[in-house]
């Protein structure tokens, strides 16, 4: 029982990170119908940016308060990662709009390979370990077979995710920007006829997705304390699985899917086999796509002749 409770806490923490990345996939898929394969690597780049900024802020500027440093890298990381995503969309995807079906997918795969190898070349292939942050723990139970603990970093991760999602939800539901975004999702041509700047809206979608992925990158760094150039692919595919499981195009679905994938991964490694935890995630992807292509909260797709 104690073990289960502990795994539940760990799963929700991990699931928050996946959920944040998954929103980027689901929004881009919703608006231009393309799998942004490079999104996982944008997440990896954001974790590197956070790592470097953290070192720069603490070593060069001498910021000693951990919370202040965390706040600075969160905001600066969001801006810099958004710039990356905006540039990628501008260079690699926008010229291909209206091109044949496979072109954006191949371009995105190329971009993903480029980003991972770019980081490897400029930052070196070794793992980058940071000193642990927020490493105090709260003891929830004692005396059982096992002490259940809640680490400060887990509280930080879940709290930041909840606050960010609330802000993001407000932006999408209540602002003109969010309305334009939802309009483009429903019918791009009609939205353009009604005076919405579609290119700009798509750019903004990429920027919002990258900003959330950047938060996920910072939280990933806080959680694991280490990052390497190859860390984009597997979390990226898992986050995509989360988006599909929740119903692609649906934002609450992405968060729900993220939590489910996080829980499945943690429980699978605790009770079945930690070697095969990624196999579990990939199997969910296959099962979800085959038996439930519209996901938990998505709308079914109708095939027209």
């Amino acid at each position: 029982m104690e073990n289960f409770l502990q795994q539940l806490i760990n799963g929700v923490t991990l699931g928050s990170i996946y959920g944040l990345i998954a929103i980027g996939y689901t929004m881009v898929y919703g608006i231009i119908g393309m799998i942004n394969f490079a999104h996982g690597d944008v997440f990896m780049v954001s974790a590197f940016i956070a790592m470097l900024l953290f070192l720069a802020v603490t070593a060069f500027l001498g910021v000693s308060s951990l919370f202040l440093a965390f706040f600075i890298i969160l905001i600066a990381g969001m801006i810099l990662t958004s710039l990356w995503s905006w540039t990628i969309e501008r260079i690699a995807y926008r010229p291909l709009r209206g091109s044949f079906r496979l072109a954006p997918l191949i371009s995105a795969i190329g971009m993903s390979i480029f980003l991972a190898n770019f980081v490897q070349v400029v930052q070196g292939p070794r793992n980058k370990p940071l000193p642990p942050m927020f490493n105090q723990v709260i003891q929830l139970t004692s005396g059982g077979e096992f002490d259940v603990t809640l680490a400060y970093k887990q509280i930080v991760i879940v709290a930041v995710t909840v606050v960010l999602l609330a802000v993001f939800w407000f932006v999408v539901q209540k602002t003109p920007l969010g309305r334009a975004q939802r309009a483009c999702e429903q019918d791009r041509k009609m939205a353009a006829l009604l005076g919405i700047n579609v290119d700009r809206t798509i750019s903004i979608t990429f920027i919002i997705g990258a900003a959330l992925a950047s938060v996920a990158g910072v939280l990933y760094l806080v959680n694991y304390g280490v990052v390497s150039f190859s860390d984009g692919f597997i979390p990226g595919v898992k986050a995509f699985t989360a988006a599909v499981l929740g119903g692609i195009g649906s934002i609450p679905g992405a968060v729900l899917g993220g939590l489910l994938i996080g829980l499945v991964e943690v429980l699978w490694s605790a009770y079945v086999s930690s070697d095969y935890k990624n196999v579990a995630a990939f199997s969910i992807l296959i099962i979800a796509l085959i038996f439930m292509p519209s996901g938990l909260l998505g709308k079914p797709e109708i095939e027209k002749v």
Binding site: L52, Q123, G124, P129
Partner: peptide, 24 residues
């Protein structure tokens, strides 16, 4: 834009030293 992209990923390099602590 390039300046924004290159900072900090090009302009700073972190490499672990002997005690496995990152040095900029």
């Amino acid at each position: 834009v390039t300046a924004g992209l290159s900072f900090p990923i090009l302009a700073l390099r972190a490499e672990p030293d002997i005690r496995n602590q990152l040095q900029l």
